[in-house]
Structure formats: C-alpha cells, structure tokens
C-alpha cells in the first residue's frame, strides 16, 4: 500500500539557485520558455503549462540590512483541491500518496481548474488544449526515487519523505528557526485540507505574495454544490408540473371538450 508522502521545503536553506526549476524541466521533458525580468533575480511570473515550478524572490530592506526571501512555487497538491471540484471531465484525481493529478486523456482544456485554484497553478496549453501542472514527479516517487526538484536541490532545502515523519521534522526545524526569525511559520499543513507540499517560511505568507487563507472560491461551491443540484430539481419539478398539467386537463375533460367543439363546428361547416 502506498502511504501519504510530503515534500517539505525549508526556505531558510534555499539559496535561490533555481536548479529545481531546471531539474523539473529536464525530468518532465519541458522545453525552455522565453523569460522576463520580474524583480531582482526572478524571471518567471507564474507557473505555465511548460514551467511547473519557479522561484520567486522577495527583497526586504530593514535596519540597514538587505535580506532576500525565496519561495518555490508549484502545485501544492491539496487534500481537498478546488481544481478537482471544478473539473468538467472528471480528469483530476487524488492518489493514495496524496498527489493531485490530471488525466490528459480525459482533460478537454476547459480551463475551469485554472480559474478555481487559489494559487493560480494549473494552466491550459494553447497548443495541446490540455491543462498542465506539477505532477509531484509521481513516476519517480512511486518507484522509490526522489522528486526531481528534491533530488537536485544542492543545499537540501527540498526534502521528501513519509508524511508523518516529514511533518515532525518540519516542526522541529520551525522551533529552531523561530529563534532567529520570530515570524517564521509552517505554510500549507492546514490549507485546503492539508497540502502535500509544506513550507517553512521565514516571514508571514504575504511577504512572499502568498494568500494567507487560500480557500475554495465561494462561486465554485455555489456552482457545483448548489446551482447544479438545484437546477436539476427545477427541471424535474417543471417536468412533473407538465405531467400533472396533462393529467389534470384530461381529468377535467378539457381535451374531450376541445375535440367535441372542433367536431361540432365541422358539422356546422365552420371550416
């Protein structure tokens, strides 16, 4: 039986070398894309259909000292993913190991997942018309290997292991780091049902441009849990009303009356 895994990214160890981004492209056979200058060392604004992970850089200047915060973006593999709820084609599913995956045979590229993800991770490839995002290197991790990003991470910031062990490790590390960074926190453990990628942040989430409380959009819950069933009820009620209407008109003799009328006027030579 496969057990739940966890990728713990300790941003206090990250050097911002971006090797994870390159390793991801190498293993998943993703072509390079034209990059832009975003800020300081950052050249990617968001995940794309061909770039599943990138590092964002956040400069901070305080007490005459410059510090840099780094954060690795990719799919967080939520336990309760809103992309899966939004999917029109049952193409998004969860694995026992905790990963959220897209079945590209079923995906039709409708883009519902794109607008539903609180982190704006999945993207539709305009050429293949399918939605893409980090797979967590499911092909590697379910065969006893490290995910490509963790495998390549030189300072050991990206760590992979069994969920419970890694969470324990993360908590111990948080206690150590809190001494130097009073705002340090674990990000992801309790978000969206608990993500499979958990971070040790040195500062509050908004410092990294991350949503503090990412959640399933209200509109999505309304859409899939209220409007769809309610719409079915409305159509069913209308169908029942039609049947009841025909039955009551028949019982009242309205159809017969109409027919007799027509016959009478026929005999009178009305038409």
């Amino acid at each position: 039986m496969t057990t739940r895994k966890l990728v713990f990214t300790d941003t206090s160890l990250c050097t911002g070398c971006k090797a994870c981004s390159v390793a991801c492209k190498a293993w998943n056979d993703l072509p390079p894309e034209k990059t832009d200058f975003v800020t300081s060392y950052q050249v990617q604004k968001e995940t794309t259909a061909k770039t599943w992970t990138y590092i964002s850089f956040h400069e901070k200047f305080a007490n005459g000292k410059m510090t840099m915060r780094m954060f690795k973006h990719q799919c967080y593999h939520c336990a309760d993913p809103s992309c899966m709820k939004a999917c029109s084609s049952d193409a998004i599913y969860k694995t026992e190991s905790g990963y959220t995956l897209i079945d590209h045979d079923k995906c039709i590229g409708c883009g519902y997942c794109v607008s539903s993800c609180p982190w704006e991770v999945p993207m539709v490839d305009p050429e293949t018309k399918k939605s893409y995002k980090c797979t967590g290197c499911i092909d590697r991790v379910e065969n006893g290997m490290l995910p490509a990003c963790a495998f390549t991470c030189q300072p050991g910031a990206i760590q992979f292991g069994e969920y419970n062990e890694m969470i324990k490790k993360a908590r111990i590390r948080l206690a150590e780091v809190l001494e130097f960074y009073p705002n340090a926190n674990l990000y992801g453990e309790k978000l969206m049902g608990g993500t499979n990628y958990v971070y040790l942040l040195l500062d509050k989430p908004d410092t990294y441009g991350l949503p503090k409380n990412p959640s399933t959009p209200w509109s999505l819950t309304l859409w899939k849990s209220v409007i769809h069933p309610l719409g079915g009820v409305a159509i069913g009620a209308a169908a029942l009303a039609v049947i009841a209407g025909v039955a009551s008109n028949a019982a009242l003799g309205n159809y017969r009356a109409k027919k007799e009328n027509a016959e009478n006027s026929h005999m009178e030579g009305g038409e």
């Binding site: 939004a86 519902y112 607008s115 539903s116 959009p217 509109s219 999505l220 309304l222 859409w223 409007i227 769809h228 309610l230 719409g231 079915g232 409305a234 159509i235 009620a237 209308a238 169908a239 009303a241 039609v242």
Partner: peptide
C-alpha cells in the same frame, strides 16, 4: 469565477422554463 455558475444557473433555469 462568477461567470461559470451564472452561465450554468441560467441555462438550467431557462431549461425548466422551456419545459413549461
């Protein structure tokens, strides 16, 4: 995000109206 539920909602409502 709100266009999706609105589109589905009106489509279903108008279908019910269409039956009548």
């Amino acid at each position: 995000q709100w266009a999706y539920p609105a589109h589905a909602g009106f489509a279903l409502l108008l279908t019910a109206v269409l039956l009548a």
